[in-house]
């Protein structure tokens, strides 16, 4: 039996999951705070734009976006299989394609922010 190549997608899934578990609760709180009209200075457009224009900021945003996408793709794959959908190949292809496109778009758009 050949060794599996799943470590590739699993490592992205695991890293994304760890990151999401740490960040998502904070992002939810921040989003709610902003939605209820309180906008701290650190979150205004100028500051956020400057953050995304900075190289370190770009790397951080890229890692968060890409890993969360790969996490979601793999989680959906296992969840759909667990729910009884017997089309693993297609689900995997579709999910990973979306995650891959998202990763590419993240790079393209982040590079356009100066």
């Amino acid at each position: 039996m050949a060794r599996s190549n799943k470590p590739l997608v699993w490592s992205l899934f695991a890293a994304g999951g760890t990151l999401a578990a740490l960040l998502v609760p904070a992002l939810v709180v921040v989003t709610l705070v902003v939605a209820y009209g309180y906008l701290p200075a650190a979150l205004d457009y100028q500051t956020m734009h400057a953050f995304a224009a900075n190289w370190l900021g770009k790397v951080i945003l890229f890692v968060v976006i890409a890993l969360c996408l790969w996490h979601a793709a793999h989680r959906l794959r296992t969840a759909l299989h667990g729910l009884g959908l017997r089309a693993d190949k297609w689900v995997a292809k579709a999910g990973y394609t979306v995650a891959g496109l998202g990763t590419v778009f993240a790079i393209v758009y982040l590079l356009q922010i100066h």
């Binding site: 039996m1 599996s4 299989h81």
Partner: peptide
């Protein structure tokens, strides 16, 4: 053992339920 367990039928079929 890795040749047996690091396969799709080995650890990679576990979905960590």
């Amino acid at each position: 053992r890795e040749d047996v367990v690091a396969t799709n039928e080995g650890i990679w079929d576990c979905a960590f339920a």
